[in-house]
Nucleic acid binder design. Structure first.
Lengths: 204, 204
DNA sequence: AGAGAATTAGACCACTGGTCTAACCGGCAC
DNA sequence: GTGCCGGTTAGACCAGTGGTCTAATTCTCT
Protein backbone atom coordinates (compact mmCIF):
# COMPACT_ATOMS: atom_id res chain seq x y z
CA UNK A 1 0.00 0.00 0.00
CA UNK A 2 1.13 3.52 -0.68
CA UNK A 3 3.07 4.90 2.25
CA UNK A 4 1.25 7.49 4.37
CA UNK A 5 3.78 10.06 3.16
CA UNK A 6 2.17 9.88 -0.23
CA UNK A 7 -1.21 10.90 1.10
CA UNK A 8 0.43 13.78 2.88
CA UNK A 9 1.31 15.25 -0.51
CA UNK A 10 -0.74 18.09 -2.02
CA UNK A 11 -3.67 16.34 -3.58
CA UNK A 12 -2.97 17.74 -7.04
CA UNK A 13 0.42 16.09 -6.96
CA UNK A 14 -1.11 12.81 -5.83
CA UNK A 15 -3.64 13.13 -8.58
CA UNK A 16 -1.03 13.81 -11.24
CA UNK A 17 0.96 10.74 -10.22
CA UNK A 18 -2.06 8.46 -10.02
CA UNK A 19 -3.46 9.75 -13.29
CA UNK A 20 -0.20 9.12 -15.09
CA UNK A 21 -0.02 5.66 -13.55
CA UNK A 22 -3.60 4.92 -14.57
CA UNK A 23 -2.81 6.02 -18.13
CA UNK A 24 0.23 3.79 -18.26
CA UNK A 25 -1.31 0.73 -16.63
CA UNK A 26 -4.54 0.85 -18.57
CA UNK A 27 -2.67 1.36 -21.83
CA UNK A 28 -0.05 -1.36 -21.39
CA UNK A 29 -1.27 -3.61 -18.59
CA UNK A 30 0.80 -4.30 -15.53
CA UNK A 31 3.62 -6.21 -17.20
CA UNK A 32 3.98 -3.81 -20.09
CA UNK A 33 3.80 -0.64 -18.05
CA UNK A 34 7.04 1.24 -17.47
CA UNK A 35 7.73 2.92 -14.18
CA UNK A 36 10.38 5.04 -15.84
CA UNK A 37 7.78 6.33 -18.25
CA UNK A 38 5.44 7.21 -15.40
CA UNK A 39 8.07 9.20 -13.55
CA UNK A 40 9.27 10.95 -16.67
CA UNK A 41 5.72 12.01 -17.49
CA UNK A 42 5.02 13.29 -14.00
CA UNK A 43 8.47 14.73 -13.40
CA UNK A 44 8.73 12.89 -10.11
CA UNK A 45 12.18 11.52 -9.45
CA UNK A 46 12.70 7.81 -8.99
CA UNK A 47 13.89 8.34 -5.45
CA UNK A 48 10.67 10.11 -4.55
CA UNK A 49 8.58 7.48 -6.25
CA UNK A 50 10.13 4.75 -4.17
CA UNK A 51 9.77 6.96 -1.17
CA UNK A 52 6.00 6.93 -1.72
CA UNK A 53 5.47 3.40 -2.98
CA UNK A 54 7.17 0.14 -2.13
CA UNK A 55 7.22 -1.18 -5.66
CA UNK A 56 5.57 -1.19 -9.02
CA UNK A 57 2.98 -3.65 -7.73
CA UNK A 58 2.29 -1.35 -4.85
CA UNK A 59 1.55 1.52 -7.18
CA UNK A 60 -0.60 -0.72 -9.35
CA UNK A 61 -2.52 -1.92 -6.33
CA UNK A 62 -3.22 1.65 -5.32
CA UNK A 63 -4.38 2.69 -8.76
CA UNK A 64 -6.60 -0.36 -9.00
CA UNK A 65 -8.05 0.12 -5.54
CA UNK A 66 -8.94 3.70 -6.35
CA UNK A 67 -10.74 2.75 -9.51
CA UNK A 68 -12.67 -0.03 -7.81
CA UNK A 69 -13.62 2.31 -5.00
CA UNK A 70 -14.78 4.95 -7.44
CA UNK A 71 -16.84 2.32 -9.22
CA UNK A 72 -18.54 1.16 -6.05
CA UNK A 73 -19.11 4.75 -5.09
CA UNK A 74 -20.73 5.70 -8.39
CA UNK A 75 -22.84 2.57 -8.45
CA UNK A 76 -23.95 1.65 -4.95
CA UNK A 77 -24.58 -2.07 -4.71
CA UNK A 78 -26.29 -2.86 -1.43
CA UNK A 79 -26.62 -6.49 -0.41
CA UNK A 80 -30.13 -7.43 -1.51
CA UNK A 81 -32.71 -7.40 1.23
CA UNK A 82 -35.16 -9.71 -0.44
CA UNK A 83 -37.51 -12.24 1.06
CA UNK A 84 -37.97 -14.31 -2.01
CA UNK A 85 -35.66 -15.83 -4.64
CA UNK A 86 -37.04 -14.03 -7.69
CA UNK A 87 -36.73 -10.67 -6.03
CA UNK A 88 -33.23 -11.50 -4.85
CA UNK A 89 -32.03 -12.31 -8.32
CA UNK A 90 -33.74 -9.32 -9.86
CA UNK A 91 -31.84 -7.02 -7.55
CA UNK A 92 -28.58 -8.72 -8.42
CA UNK A 93 -29.33 -8.35 -12.10
CA UNK A 94 -30.03 -4.66 -11.65
CA UNK A 95 -26.71 -4.20 -9.85
CA UNK A 96 -24.80 -5.96 -12.56
CA UNK A 97 -26.49 -4.02 -15.33
CA UNK A 98 -25.72 -0.70 -13.70
CA UNK A 99 -22.10 -1.71 -13.19
CA UNK A 100 -21.63 -2.81 -16.77
CA UNK A 101 -23.17 0.40 -18.06
CA UNK A 102 -20.73 2.45 -16.05
CA UNK A 103 -17.83 0.37 -17.32
CA UNK A 104 -18.91 0.81 -20.89
CA UNK A 105 -18.91 4.54 -20.28
CA UNK A 106 -15.41 4.55 -18.74
CA UNK A 107 -13.25 2.55 -21.10
CA UNK A 108 -10.02 3.34 -19.31
CA UNK A 109 -11.27 1.80 -16.12
CA UNK A 110 -12.62 -1.11 -18.13
CA UNK A 111 -9.19 -1.66 -19.68
CA UNK A 112 -7.53 -1.60 -16.29
CA UNK A 113 -10.02 -4.07 -14.87
CA UNK A 114 -9.70 -6.34 -17.86
CA UNK A 115 -5.95 -6.47 -17.39
CA UNK A 116 -6.41 -7.18 -13.72
CA UNK A 117 -9.07 -9.84 -14.24
CA UNK A 118 -7.02 -11.72 -16.75
CA UNK A 119 -3.69 -11.45 -15.01
CA UNK A 120 -4.65 -11.12 -11.41
CA UNK A 121 -3.51 -14.40 -9.91
CA UNK A 122 0.01 -14.14 -11.31
CA UNK A 123 2.38 -14.22 -8.37
CA UNK A 124 3.62 -10.71 -9.01
CA UNK A 125 0.20 -9.25 -8.36
CA UNK A 126 -0.77 -10.84 -5.10
CA UNK A 127 -0.71 -7.44 -3.49
CA UNK A 128 -3.12 -5.96 -6.00
CA UNK A 129 -5.17 -9.13 -5.91
CA UNK A 130 -5.42 -8.86 -2.18
CA UNK A 131 -6.33 -5.20 -2.10
CA UNK A 132 -9.08 -5.59 -4.67
CA UNK A 133 -10.41 -8.72 -3.05
CA UNK A 134 -10.83 -6.79 0.14
CA UNK A 135 -13.24 -4.59 -1.77
CA UNK A 136 -15.07 -7.35 -3.60
CA UNK A 137 -15.01 -10.59 -1.69
CA UNK A 138 -16.74 -9.50 1.48
CA UNK A 139 -19.60 -8.13 -0.55
CA UNK A 140 -19.90 -11.33 -2.52
CA UNK A 141 -19.67 -13.44 0.62
CA UNK A 142 -22.37 -11.39 2.30
CA UNK A 143 -24.59 -11.59 -0.72
CA UNK A 144 -24.18 -15.35 -0.96
CA UNK A 145 -25.00 -15.63 2.74
CA UNK A 146 -28.07 -13.45 2.27
CA UNK A 147 -29.17 -15.60 -0.63
CA UNK A 148 -28.72 -18.74 1.37
CA UNK A 149 -30.71 -17.32 4.26
CA UNK A 150 -33.80 -16.86 2.12
CA UNK A 151 -33.36 -20.09 0.19
CA UNK A 152 -32.24 -18.46 -3.05
CA UNK A 153 -28.82 -20.14 -2.96
CA UNK A 154 -27.96 -23.77 -2.33
CA UNK A 155 -26.36 -24.72 0.96
CA UNK A 156 -25.13 -28.19 0.07
CA UNK A 157 -21.70 -26.96 -1.04
CA UNK A 158 -19.03 -24.94 0.78
CA UNK A 159 -19.70 -21.24 0.36
CA UNK A 160 -16.03 -20.84 -0.63
CA UNK A 161 -16.56 -23.10 -3.57
CA UNK A 162 -19.69 -21.29 -4.69
CA UNK A 163 -17.89 -17.98 -4.40
CA UNK A 164 -14.91 -19.21 -6.40
CA UNK A 165 -17.18 -20.45 -9.17
CA UNK A 166 -19.24 -17.26 -9.16
CA UNK A 167 -16.04 -15.21 -9.41
CA UNK A 168 -14.95 -17.32 -12.36
CA UNK A 169 -18.27 -16.95 -14.09
CA UNK A 170 -18.28 -13.26 -13.34
CA UNK A 171 -14.83 -12.74 -14.78
CA UNK A 172 -15.75 -14.62 -17.94
CA UNK A 173 -18.98 -12.66 -18.31
CA UNK A 174 -17.31 -9.33 -17.57
CA UNK A 175 -14.65 -10.01 -20.14
CA UNK A 176 -17.15 -11.22 -22.72
CA UNK A 177 -19.37 -8.21 -22.16
CA UNK A 178 -16.65 -5.57 -22.01
CA UNK A 179 -14.66 -6.81 -24.94
CA UNK A 180 -17.35 -6.25 -27.54
CA UNK A 181 -18.93 -2.93 -28.40
CA UNK A 182 -22.38 -3.08 -26.88
CA UNK A 183 -25.65 -1.53 -27.84
CA UNK A 184 -28.14 -0.92 -25.11
CA UNK A 185 -30.78 -3.57 -25.78
CA UNK A 186 -28.12 -6.22 -26.23
CA UNK A 187 -26.47 -5.25 -22.99
CA UNK A 188 -29.63 -5.74 -20.98
CA UNK A 189 -30.36 -9.06 -22.63
CA UNK A 190 -26.83 -10.30 -22.12
CA UNK A 191 -26.78 -9.27 -18.50
CA UNK A 192 -30.07 -11.05 -18.00
CA UNK A 193 -28.67 -14.21 -19.56
CA UNK A 194 -25.51 -13.98 -17.49
CA UNK A 195 -27.30 -13.63 -14.20
CA UNK A 196 -29.67 -16.38 -15.22
CA UNK A 197 -26.76 -18.74 -15.64
CA UNK A 198 -25.37 -17.81 -12.27
CA UNK A 199 -28.76 -18.33 -10.74
CA UNK A 200 -29.14 -21.76 -12.25
CA UNK A 201 -25.64 -22.80 -11.15
CA UNK A 202 -26.02 -21.89 -7.51
CA UNK A 203 -29.73 -21.81 -6.75
CA UNK A 204 -31.07 -24.20 -4.14
CA UNK B 1 6.09 -21.51 -32.96
CA UNK B 2 9.52 -23.10 -32.67
CA UNK B 3 11.38 -22.87 -35.95
CA UNK B 4 11.71 -26.12 -37.91
CA UNK B 5 15.46 -25.99 -37.23
CA UNK B 6 14.74 -26.75 -33.63
CA UNK B 7 12.98 -29.99 -34.47
CA UNK B 8 15.92 -30.95 -36.65
CA UNK B 9 18.07 -31.07 -33.52
CA UNK B 10 18.95 -34.38 -31.88
CA UNK B 11 15.92 -35.17 -29.78
CA UNK B 12 17.92 -35.37 -26.55
CA UNK B 13 19.04 -31.79 -27.05
CA UNK B 14 15.47 -30.73 -27.78
CA UNK B 15 14.38 -32.55 -24.66
CA UNK B 16 17.04 -30.92 -22.50
CA UNK B 17 16.02 -27.46 -23.64
CA UNK B 18 12.29 -28.04 -23.25
CA UNK B 19 12.77 -29.69 -19.86
CA UNK B 20 14.79 -26.77 -18.58
CA UNK B 21 12.19 -24.37 -19.94
CA UNK B 22 9.39 -26.35 -18.30
CA UNK B 23 11.25 -26.24 -14.99
CA UNK B 24 11.73 -22.51 -15.23
CA UNK B 25 8.23 -21.62 -16.43
CA UNK B 26 6.42 -23.88 -13.99
CA UNK B 27 8.55 -22.62 -11.11
CA UNK B 28 8.28 -18.90 -11.81
CA UNK B 29 5.42 -18.45 -14.26
CA UNK B 30 5.85 -16.72 -17.58
CA UNK B 31 6.65 -13.24 -16.29
CA UNK B 32 9.06 -14.42 -13.61
CA UNK B 33 10.92 -16.91 -15.77
CA UNK B 34 14.38 -15.93 -16.95
CA UNK B 35 15.56 -16.86 -20.39
CA UNK B 36 19.13 -16.31 -19.30
CA UNK B 37 18.64 -18.89 -16.57
CA UNK B 38 17.29 -21.39 -19.06
CA UNK B 39 20.21 -21.02 -21.42
CA UNK B 40 22.75 -21.11 -18.63
CA UNK B 41 21.23 -24.34 -17.29
CA UNK B 42 21.16 -26.01 -20.68
CA UNK B 43 24.46 -24.57 -21.91
CA UNK B 44 22.80 -23.37 -25.08
CA UNK B 45 24.06 -19.99 -26.21
CA UNK B 46 21.67 -17.10 -26.53
CA UNK B 47 22.33 -16.88 -30.25
CA UNK B 48 21.27 -20.48 -30.74
CA UNK B 49 18.22 -20.03 -28.57
CA UNK B 50 17.00 -17.18 -30.71
CA UNK B 51 17.90 -19.19 -33.74
CA UNK B 52 15.41 -21.85 -32.60
CA UNK B 53 12.68 -19.69 -31.10
CA UNK B 54 11.36 -16.28 -32.05
CA UNK B 55 10.98 -15.06 -28.52
CA UNK B 56 10.35 -15.96 -24.93
CA UNK B 57 6.63 -16.23 -25.66
CA UNK B 58 7.38 -18.55 -28.51
CA UNK B 59 9.32 -20.89 -26.25
CA UNK B 60 6.56 -20.70 -23.64
CA UNK B 61 3.93 -21.50 -26.24
CA UNK B 62 5.89 -24.55 -27.31
CA UNK B 63 6.38 -25.84 -23.78
CA UNK B 64 2.72 -25.29 -23.01
CA UNK B 65 1.53 -26.93 -26.20
CA UNK B 66 3.64 -30.00 -25.45
CA UNK B 67 2.22 -30.36 -21.98
CA UNK B 68 -1.36 -29.95 -23.16
CA UNK B 69 -0.78 -32.48 -25.92
CA UNK B 70 0.73 -34.94 -23.46
CA UNK B 71 -2.27 -34.47 -21.21
CA UNK B 72 -4.78 -35.13 -23.95
CA UNK B 73 -2.72 -38.11 -25.04
CA UNK B 74 -2.58 -39.65 -21.58
CA UNK B 75 -6.27 -38.99 -20.94
CA UNK B 76 -8.28 -39.43 -24.11
CA UNK B 77 -11.41 -37.32 -23.96
CA UNK B 78 -13.68 -38.21 -26.86
CA UNK B 79 -16.67 -35.99 -27.52
CA UNK B 80 -19.53 -37.77 -25.79
CA UNK B 81 -21.72 -39.85 -28.08
CA UNK B 82 -24.73 -39.89 -25.85
CA UNK B 83 -28.38 -39.91 -26.78
CA UNK B 84 -29.68 -38.59 -23.51
CA UNK B 85 -28.78 -35.73 -21.19
CA UNK B 86 -27.90 -37.76 -18.10
CA UNK B 87 -25.58 -39.98 -20.04
CA UNK B 88 -24.00 -36.96 -21.71
CA UNK B 89 -23.20 -35.30 -18.41
CA UNK B 90 -21.95 -38.52 -16.86
CA UNK B 91 -19.40 -38.89 -19.61
CA UNK B 92 -18.28 -35.29 -19.15
CA UNK B 93 -17.90 -35.85 -15.44
CA UNK B 94 -15.79 -38.93 -16.07
CA UNK B 95 -13.53 -36.99 -18.39
CA UNK B 96 -13.06 -34.21 -15.93
CA UNK B 97 -12.34 -36.55 -13.05
CA UNK B 98 -9.68 -38.39 -15.03
CA UNK B 99 -8.08 -35.14 -16.07
CA UNK B 100 -7.96 -33.78 -12.54
CA UNK B 101 -6.46 -37.02 -11.25
CA UNK B 102 -3.69 -36.79 -13.79
CA UNK B 103 -3.04 -33.17 -12.91
CA UNK B 104 -2.85 -33.96 -9.21
CA UNK B 105 -0.26 -36.60 -10.09
CA UNK B 106 1.83 -34.20 -12.21
CA UNK B 107 2.19 -31.05 -10.14
CA UNK B 108 4.66 -29.44 -12.49
CA UNK B 109 2.19 -29.54 -15.33
CA UNK B 110 -0.49 -28.34 -12.95
CA UNK B 111 1.67 -25.36 -11.98
CA UNK B 112 2.29 -24.51 -15.60
CA UNK B 113 -1.38 -24.70 -16.43
CA UNK B 114 -2.34 -22.65 -13.43
CA UNK B 115 0.02 -19.90 -14.53
CA UNK B 116 -1.36 -20.06 -18.01
CA UNK B 117 -5.00 -20.09 -16.93
CA UNK B 118 -4.58 -17.10 -14.71
CA UNK B 119 -2.41 -15.04 -17.03
CA UNK B 120 -3.42 -16.26 -20.42
CA UNK B 121 -5.22 -13.28 -21.86
CA UNK B 122 -2.45 -10.83 -21.06
CA UNK B 123 -1.31 -9.32 -24.33
CA UNK B 124 2.16 -10.80 -24.08
CA UNK B 125 0.80 -14.31 -24.22
CA UNK B 126 -1.49 -14.18 -27.18
CA UNK B 127 0.74 -16.61 -29.00
CA UNK B 128 0.57 -19.17 -26.21
CA UNK B 129 -3.11 -18.44 -25.78
CA UNK B 130 -3.67 -19.14 -29.40
CA UNK B 131 -1.66 -22.32 -29.53
CA UNK B 132 -3.36 -23.81 -26.51
CA UNK B 133 -6.79 -22.72 -27.64
CA UNK B 134 -6.25 -24.65 -30.81
CA UNK B 135 -6.02 -27.72 -28.61
CA UNK B 136 -8.88 -26.91 -26.27
CA UNK B 137 -11.49 -24.74 -27.87
CA UNK B 138 -12.44 -26.94 -30.79
CA UNK B 139 -13.05 -29.80 -28.41
CA UNK B 140 -15.20 -27.65 -26.17
CA UNK B 141 -17.09 -26.25 -29.14
CA UNK B 142 -17.74 -29.72 -30.50
CA UNK B 143 -18.87 -30.95 -27.14
CA UNK B 144 -21.25 -28.04 -26.70
CA UNK B 145 -22.62 -28.70 -30.18
CA UNK B 146 -23.06 -32.38 -29.38
CA UNK B 147 -24.86 -31.48 -26.17
CA UNK B 148 -27.13 -29.10 -28.02
CA UNK B 149 -27.95 -31.71 -30.63
CA UNK B 150 -29.37 -34.10 -28.06
CA UNK B 151 -31.06 -31.41 -26.01
CA UNK B 152 -28.60 -31.52 -23.12
CA UNK B 153 -27.48 -27.93 -23.62
CA UNK B 154 -29.60 -24.83 -24.14
CA UNK B 155 -29.73 -23.25 -27.58
CA UNK B 156 -31.25 -19.89 -26.66
CA UNK B 157 -27.86 -18.21 -26.21
CA UNK B 158 -24.90 -17.82 -28.56
CA UNK B 159 -22.61 -20.82 -28.29
CA UNK B 160 -19.66 -18.42 -27.94
CA UNK B 161 -21.17 -17.02 -24.81
CA UNK B 162 -21.82 -20.45 -23.32
CA UNK B 163 -18.28 -21.47 -24.12
CA UNK B 164 -16.81 -18.35 -22.53
CA UNK B 165 -18.80 -18.93 -19.37
CA UNK B 166 -17.92 -22.61 -19.27
CA UNK B 167 -14.25 -21.73 -19.67
CA UNK B 168 -14.53 -19.28 -16.80
CA UNK B 169 -16.25 -21.81 -14.57
CA UNK B 170 -13.73 -24.43 -15.57
CA UNK B 171 -10.80 -22.20 -14.73
CA UNK B 172 -12.24 -21.36 -11.34
CA UNK B 173 -12.98 -25.00 -10.60
CA UNK B 174 -9.59 -26.17 -11.82
CA UNK B 175 -7.87 -23.62 -9.66
CA UNK B 176 -10.01 -24.41 -6.65
CA UNK B 177 -9.45 -28.13 -7.07
CA UNK B 178 -5.73 -28.01 -7.85
CA UNK B 179 -4.82 -25.54 -5.17
CA UNK B 180 -5.82 -27.70 -2.22
CA UNK B 181 -4.35 -31.10 -1.42
CA UNK B 182 -7.05 -33.56 -2.33
CA UNK B 183 -7.95 -36.96 -1.01
CA UNK B 184 -9.65 -39.32 -3.39
CA UNK B 185 -13.25 -39.32 -2.13
CA UNK B 186 -13.26 -35.54 -1.88
CA UNK B 187 -11.97 -35.20 -5.39
CA UNK B 188 -14.78 -37.27 -6.85
CA UNK B 189 -17.40 -35.42 -4.85
CA UNK B 190 -15.97 -32.01 -5.79
CA UNK B 191 -15.79 -32.93 -9.44
CA UNK B 192 -19.37 -34.10 -9.29
CA UNK B 193 -20.46 -30.82 -7.74
CA UNK B 194 -18.49 -28.82 -10.30
CA UNK B 195 -19.99 -30.58 -13.29
CA UNK B 196 -23.39 -30.30 -11.71
CA UNK B 197 -23.06 -26.56 -11.59
CA UNK B 198 -21.98 -26.41 -15.20
CA UNK B 199 -24.91 -28.58 -16.13
CA UNK B 200 -27.38 -26.36 -14.34
CA UNK B 201 -25.94 -23.23 -15.91
CA UNK B 202 -26.13 -24.38 -19.50
CA UNK B 203 -28.70 -27.14 -19.65
CA UNK B 204 -31.73 -26.65 -21.84
C1' DA C 1 20.93 30.91 13.46
C1' DG C 2 21.65 26.16 13.79
C1' DA C 3 20.71 21.22 14.55
C1' DG C 4 18.22 17.41 13.00
C1' DA C 5 14.79 15.31 10.52
C1' DA C 6 12.07 14.63 6.30
C1' DT C 7 12.40 14.67 1.57
C1' DT C 8 14.36 14.73 -3.09
C1' DA C 9 17.45 13.90 -6.95
C1' DG C 10 19.55 11.02 -9.92
C1' DA C 11 23.75 8.13 -10.48
C1' DC C 12 24.13 3.50 -10.12
C1' DC C 13 23.19 -1.66 -9.98
C1' DA C 14 22.15 -6.28 -11.58
C1' DC C 15 19.40 -8.09 -14.66
C1' DT C 16 16.00 -8.46 -18.56
C1' DG C 17 14.72 -9.93 -23.47
C1' DG C 18 16.57 -9.30 -27.79
C1' DT C 19 20.16 -8.10 -31.75
C1' DC C 20 24.28 -8.52 -34.37
C1' DT C 21 28.55 -9.86 -36.15
C1' DA C 22 32.38 -12.66 -36.43
C1' DA C 23 33.80 -17.22 -36.24
C1' DC C 24 33.02 -21.97 -37.14
C1' DC C 25 31.83 -26.26 -39.44
C1' DG C 26 30.15 -29.73 -42.85
C1' DG C 27 29.62 -30.85 -47.42
C1' DC C 28 30.09 -30.07 -52.21
C1' DA C 29 32.68 -28.56 -56.63
C1' DC C 30 36.73 -28.37 -58.74
C1' DG D 1 43.40 -31.32 -51.21
C1' DT D 2 41.51 -26.40 -51.67
C1' DG D 3 38.08 -23.09 -51.83
C1' DC D 4 33.80 -21.82 -50.91
C1' DC D 5 29.36 -21.20 -49.12
C1' DG D 6 25.18 -21.91 -46.40
C1' DG D 7 23.64 -23.32 -42.02
C1' DT D 8 24.87 -22.84 -37.33
C1' DT D 9 26.89 -21.13 -32.99
C1' DA D 10 28.96 -18.08 -29.58
C1' DG D 11 28.79 -14.35 -26.85
C1' DA D 12 29.63 -9.27 -26.76
C1' DC D 13 26.52 -5.85 -26.88
C1' DC D 14 22.17 -2.91 -26.57
C1' DA D 15 18.42 -0.27 -24.60
C1' DG D 16 15.52 -0.68 -21.15
C1' DT D 17 13.78 -2.64 -16.61
C1' DG D 18 12.66 -2.33 -11.47
C1' DG D 19 15.02 -1.19 -7.52
C1' DT D 20 18.89 0.82 -4.19
C1' DC D 21 21.81 4.23 -2.18
C1' DT D 22 23.92 8.34 -0.90
C1' DA D 23 24.65 13.06 -1.01
C1' DA D 24 22.36 17.26 -1.25
C1' DT D 25 18.46 20.02 -0.24
C1' DT D 26 14.46 21.73 2.20
C1' DC D 27 11.62 22.06 6.21
C1' DT D 28 10.75 22.50 11.11
C1' DC D 29 11.42 23.41 15.52
C1' DT D 30 14.30 25.23 19.35
Amino acid sequence: MARPRFHALPSERQGAILDAALDEFSAHGFAGASLNRIISVTGVSKGSMYYYFDSKEDLYADVLRRQVERLFQDVPLPVPEATEADEFWNIIEGHYLRLMRLLVATPQTAALLRDWLTGAASPALREAQHSAEQATLPWLAETVAAGQRIGAIRTDLPADFLIAVLLGMGQAMDTWLIIRPLTEPELAADVHAAIDMMRRAVSA
